Amino acid sequence: MVLENKWQYLRSIILLRDKITSFSQYPFSLPVICTLETLEFHPRVTFIVGENGTGKSTFLEAIAVAWGFNPEGGTINFNFHTRNTHSELYKYLRLVRSAKKPRDGFFLRAESFYNLATNIDELGPDLINSYGGRSLHKQSHGESFFAAFMNRFGGRGLYILDEPEAALSPVRQMALVSRIHDLVRQDSQFIIATHSPIIMGYPEAAILQLSAGGFETVRYEETEHYMVMKEFVNNREKMLKVLLMP
């Protein structure tokens, strides 16, 4: 399956290394940052994967804020904040944009989605309607995530998602893959940080794996997420014996 996308909005980023005074301090000390110069994105879907603590969320947050999104998530128009915890990395990124401008966009951040839902309620019924007409707080965590994907994501947009699988069952993760595909066909671009082997299985995507050496482009079957999950499912009893040894 090959899908053309002439609507790539974010082509690449450049780290302004000459403006950084020290790579020994966070977040510049992260391997993903201190080894970074230029990073190109897939015109449709780019996955950023890696172990906890490698800097996926920090990196994704910086891209989103540099684009103009609120650090806690939402569309460009959201400006609420509950706690100012985002790093200053965004100030040192140069975004290489295409001539095409997105009509839509959203930064979904799993850890602050509750705060986003609260702000939507505070802004009133007109905004709630764009998320399906029902308060996100009156739905389960997974339902509220999915309501945003299905109702608020309108196509021809740049969508930056940080661990969207956090509240989704495996079935809903597969439904999200289908939704991503629908939106790609509507001229959308996605940048997604994820641990989900289901979501990162979307075909024809770029998978950028973070390690001590920085970014590495890998095939789906080469990701640690896929290999560990496959090994566990195929050899559950053997692995549990090892994991549960006294």
Score class of each variant (00 low, 15 high):
residue 25 Q to F: 07
residue 28 F to R: 08
residue 86 H to E: 11
residue 163 E to G: 00
residue 238 K to V: 13
residue 192 I to R: 07
residue 91 K to F: 03
residue 170 P to M: 11
residue 108 L to I: 11
residue 70 N to P: 09
residue 56 K to I: 02
residue 119 N to E: 15
residue 83 R to S: 15
residue 186 Q to D: 13
residue 174 M to C: 06
residue 189 Q to M: 11
residue 170 P to I: 10
residue 215 F to A: 06
residue 78 F to C: 04
residue 210 L to Q: 00
residue 197 P to C: 02
residue 179 R to C: 01
residue 52 N to E: 08
residue 9 Y to F: 15
residue 84 N to V: 14
residue 24 S to F: 04
residue 178 S to H: 13
residue 93 L to E: 06
residue 93 L to M: 08
residue 83 R to I: 12
residue 51 E to N: 10
residue 101 K to W: 02
residue 108 L to F: 15
residue 50 G to Y: 05
residue 237 E to L: 14
residue 34 C to Q: 13
residue 232 F to C: 04
residue 101 K to G: 01
residue 140 S to D: 05
residue 117 A to D: 02
residue 39 L to V: 12
residue 140 S to L: 07
residue 87 S to W: 07
residue 164 P to F: 00
residue 191 I to P: 00
residue 211 S to T: 09
residue 223 T to Y: 00
residue 140 S to W: 02
residue 34 C to A: 01
residue 130 S to I: 10
residue 134 R to S: 04
residue 36 L to C: 09
residue 143 E to T: 04
residue 174 M to D: 10
residue 80 F to N: 07
residue 165 E to S: 03
residue 107 F to I: 07
residue 231 E to I: 00
residue 53 G to I: 02
residue 106 F to V: 03
residue 170 P to S: 10
residue 11 R to Y: 10
residue 28 F to Y: 13
residue 184 V to R: 02
residue 206 A to T: 10
residue 235 N to P: 06
residue 116 L to D: 01
residue 178 S to C: 08
residue 128 I to R: 04
residue 205 A to P: 08
residue 88 E to M: 13
residue 130 S to P: 01
residue 122 E to M: 14
residue 129 N to R: 13
residue 107 F to D: 02
residue 218 V to Q: 08
residue 128 I to L: 02
residue 111 E to N: 13
residue 196 S to C: 10
residue 22 S to E: 10
residue 173 Q to C: 06
residue 131 Y to W: 09
residue 192 I to P: 04
residue 176 L to R: 02
residue 102 P to W: 00
residue 187 D to A: 12
residue 202 Y to L: 08
residue 239 M to G: 05
residue 53 G to A: 06
residue 46 T to K: 03
residue 27 P to D: 08
residue 177 V to S: 10
residue 228 V to M: 12
residue 103 R to H: 07
residue 117 A to P: 04
residue 170 P to D: 09
residue 147 A to H: 06
residue 26 Y to L: 06
residue 129 N to E: 13
residue 12 S to D: 12
residue 11 R to V: 14
residue 115 N to K: 12
residue 141 H to S: 14
residue 225 H to S: 12
residue 64 A to M: 06
residue 183 L to S: 00
residue 120 I to F: 02
residue 82 T to V: 12
residue 197 P to M: 03
residue 151 N to L: 11
residue 104 D to L: 01
residue 63 I to Q: 05
residue 160 I to K: 01
residue 79 N to S: 15
residue 96 V to R: 14
residue 77 N to C: 01
residue 207 I to Q: 02
residue 242 V to M: 08
residue 81 H to G: 07
residue 9 Y to N: 05
residue 203 P to N: 12
residue 183 L to M: 07
residue 91 K to I: 04
residue 56 K to M: 06
residue 24 S to T: 11
residue 7 W to L: 04
residue 139 Q to F: 02
residue 227 M to K: 15
residue 38 T to A: 09
residue 68 G to P: 10
residue 80 F to Q: 10
residue 30 L to Q: 05
residue 181 H to F: 05
residue 229 M to G: 02
residue 37 E to D: 15
residue 98 S to C: 10
residue 240 L to R: 12
residue 75 T to H: 04
residue 99 A to N: 14
residue 217 T to K: 15
residue 160 I to M: 08
residue 80 F to D: 12
residue 200 M to Y: 03
residue 97 R to A: 09
residue 60 L to M: 11
residue 142 G to V: 01
residue 89 L to R: 07
residue 171 V to L: 14
residue 172 R to Y: 10
residue 114 Y to T: 07
residue 222 E to R: 07
residue 196 S to T: 05
residue 121 D to W: 08
residue 243 L to A: 15
residue 202 Y to I: 05
residue 86 H to N: 11
residue 195 H to W: 07
residue 188 S to E: 05
residue 142 G to H: 03
